Amino acid sequence: MGKRLDGNIASAADRTIVITGGNSGIGRAAASMLAGMDARVVLAVRNLRKGRTAAQTIRGNVEVRHLDLADLSTVHDFAEEFSDPIDILINNAGIMAPPLGHTADGFESQFGTNHLVHFALTNLLLPQIRDRVVTVSSMAHRMGSIEFDDLNWERRTYKPMAAYGQSKLANLLFTSELQRRLTEVSSPIIATAAHPGLAATNLYRRQGNRLLASVAEAVIGLVSQSEQQGAVPTLCAATADIPGNSYVGPRGFKETMGQPKLVGRSAAAKDTEVARRLWTVSEELTGVEFPL
């Protein structure tokens, strides 16, 4: 059983925190909590209008910047335009089980959005980061595998949830390899990960299959926790006194809900050789390398 982290959310006062996808769901809940702790929160969002609407509902120091996680060019633009020091980067935004689609750069949409663009964003911003990088994964990482011969589902029959599992497994492998590299260069930055358990967010509404989305939303609504509760593991991963490569999730009923604790991960998520290979491939695909 992992270490319980009840109440282990440290102060975020006067810290600059960039969070992707902070205009809805767990991202907005986390942003609201962090702003309420007197942090300067930067919402990196695709839709500026929705981002500004969300910011108006949050009390505190909140900014909105454009970042489209389906387009690497906007990641470069964001990194070039945001020159301030960053205490914490939270790679939160993601999509779940849409029909087969591709990013502007030709990547399968889930692998591209959930992993590759966050990989590029982190490495581009890393020289400005002072404390830590948090990446939001999922229990679904346990159903994932990294298929290096077909990362973009060009040969296999596309399976939305399997593709989602691959992207969420990539998040954890990215976290572990990032931490290894940070340790190797004696950087004070740490990399952590979190998952929300089952939380009632709009992620399920974004699925292309309306019937599947409706069924999923109904079932999740019966057994899930709120967006605010689902955001607590992210806050712990961002502020608690925990070691690098920690993975935080809920402790109740098979990690679906409850107070946060350090949780385990699949054997595939602990494979250091796959993590290193995925890093190399991600550098090749995005053209962005580890900068430290």
Rank of each mutant, 00 (worst) to 15 (best):
A30C: 02
G21V: 02
V75Q: 06
D77Y: 08
K168M: 02
R251Q: 15
P250E: 15
T16V: 13
T280F: 00
S176R: 01
M33A: 15
L126W: 05
A12M: 12
A191G: 11
S224G: 07
R276V: 00
D6V: 09
T57S: 13
G197C: 09
T16C: 06
N171K: 04
T201C: 03
G264I: 03
D6S: 12
P85F: 02
T286P: 02
E81L: 13
T192P: 05
L126M: 09
S24W: 06
P291F: 10
P127K: 02
N47V: 01
P260V: 09
G287D: 07
D38T: 12
L124M: 07
S226W: 14
I9T: 10
A104G: 05
T113V: 06
I9A: 11
A39G: 02
T57V: 01
R277W: 01
G21Q: 08
A120E: 05
E184A: 07
R251I: 09
E154Q: 13
P99K: 15
V133K: 11
R4F: 11
R265F: 01
D87R: 04
L278M: 07
R205Y: 10
V45G: 07
A13R: 13
G101K: 12
A269V: 02
E154L: 13
K3A: 11
T113G: 05
R28A: 04
A213P: 01
Q207D: 12
H115V: 00
A35P: 01
A120M: 02
V185F: 07
L211W: 15
A240K: 09
D149M: 10
H115E: 04
F119M: 04
D6N: 13
A237N: 03
A120I: 00
V62Y: 08
V18R: 05
P160S: 15
Q128M: 06
L235H: 07
R132F: 08
D105K: 00
K159N: 14
I95Y: 10
V133L: 06
T103P: 03
R206I: 00
T280N: 10
Q179R: 04
H66S: 14
P160I: 11
A240Y: 08
D6F: 08
P98C: 13
L285N: 00
R65M: 11
F111G: 01
D14E: 15
K270M: 02
A218H: 15
A30L: 04
D149K: 10
A35I: 03
V185S: 09
T280E: 14
E147M: 15
I146E: 06
A193C: 06
N209E: 13
E217L: 10
V232F: 14
L124T: 01
G27N: 10
R155E: 15
V263I: 12
S266Y: 03
N23C: 05
G27Y: 11
L182P: 00
A44E: 09
N123V: 04
T135G: 04
S145M: 10
I17N: 01
L48N: 05
A193F: 01
E177T: 01
L34A: 00
H66I: 12
E154K: 14
